[in-house]
Design a protein around this nucleic acid. Structure first.
Lengths: 226, 226
DNA sequence: CGGGACCTTGAAACACCTCAAATATGGTGG
DNA sequence: CCACCATATTTGAGGTGTTTCAAGGTCCCG
């Protein structure tokens, strides 16, 4: 494929620090795929045949249970690397929140390549460490934080993947239900918590999906509380 | 070191499938350390200089916050491999629940060795996958399960590391507070939940720390609920 | 046998959930 | 471009599970 890969500002991607030749080797394995909004990239328990890098759009990683309960494990964005595992089957599903474009790389071949390109191996390890760290953060949030702290935790995460920029607006591409399933709350509690944060002057809600941070200091205090 | 390594029945350890020579190479890097009960192996944010394999005893992985809140990330047992990271600093503390013996291996040298021994590399990857899977299970439990389901979730986990044996007794080496901090509950809720499970005939409580499973089917139903 | 730490139990408060209804939003066809 | 519709969000009222605060009981170890 010849399309340029997404490269975030200072964000870590699998392409970081690769030589042109190494990048070419990866490119030879790659294909670009497009997905519609609210479609599945793959499902839990399906064979883990490929890894993906997000070029454009937003997706969420989810785990569902027989009784219909659903836990969102992460919201992912351009530059993120997903589907990497050493198990035979995926342990979660990945669903698009918007139309999306992804680079697809056969998993076996990707692993073989990462075994011979030290920089690529290093990147993969770094990303894997970050994924685990992110998941541990979520455990802490779900185990120890109150509803308002959890919502701020999410807003803070969404802010961080933009630059350390000013009090920008946050565009929430996910529904309240998605947020609830990420934070272990109900949709009503999420909605009420947003309302309370607005009343307290910490955020403003321009539209349901456009949030402005008014008091960054307080937001961070809630987000990092505990 | 010449002490034999712990090898669980079918449990995956870093030593799985290594040749005698490869095992010897690891042994040359290893030292055996002993820790008293309720002492720290290392603290969050300290330099990640070594990885460890548990030979004997029980420990817990914890993450603490400034305000005193604490989240237990895992209870670990003989055969488990801990401290492996590609970050410069540990992201959690490890504390002993009992007196413990561990094999200590310098992290840098361990990583170098795992780069040249395919089987060791494979084992490390497998273990890392398991750690992430375990953490995702915990996210699901904390986000979606009720108190009784969470307690059964823990009991079920503790049962699994013994054989698929019969209705054995479980020896809880951790305190009710540790359990509470693992499951995102309070100590009183944990205590009341145990009482309720006993009243419902699902478990029996011989001593506070010796639990017998009476109704395995119901326990699993609760543990895996959702 | 005594003392401290841990565990259990009770009662009341509270955060969050459930159920229900009203309102807002965003996409679509006329 | 607007009106309409389906869907998503907000808000209200009441219920429930979990927490908080407090007291009593149990266990273990010296």
């Amino acid at each position: 494929m010849n399309k340029p890969h997404h490269r975030g500002k200072s964000q870590l991607t699998i392409f970081n620090g690769l030589s042109e030749d190494e990048t070419r080797q990866l490119d030879k394995l790659s294909s670009l795929i497009s997905l519609e909004s609210h479609s599945y990239l793959f499902h839990q328990h399906s064979p883990a045949n490929a890894v993906y890098m997000i070029e454009d759009g937003a997706l969420m990683i989810e785990r569902s249970a027989a009784n219909g309960k659903r836990q969102i494990l992460a919201f992912v964005h351009p530059g993120n690397f997903i589907g990497f595992t050493h198990n035979e089957y995926y342990e979660f599903s990945v669903q698009t929140l918007t139309a999306a474009k992804l680079t697809k790389i056969p998993r076996r071949q990707f692993i073989e390549l990462s075994d011979v390109i030290p920089q690529l191996k290093h990147n993969v390890r770094q990303i894997s460490s970050n994924v685990l760290a992110h998941t541990m953060d979520q455990v802490f949030a779900l185990g120890q934080k109150k509803a308002n702290e959890r919502v701020c935790f999410l807003l803070h995460q969404l802010l961080q993947r933009k630059g350390e920029g000013s009090t920008e607006n946050i565009d929430l591409v996910m529904t309240r239900q998605d947020i609830a399933d990420y934070l272990g709350l109900t949709i009503e509690t999420v909605s009420r918590t947003f309302a309370k944060l607005k009343k307290d002057g910490i955020i403003d809600i321009h539209f349901a999906h456009v949030i402005e941070i008014l008091d960054m200091q307080q937001l961070r205090a809630f987000a990092l509380a505990t």
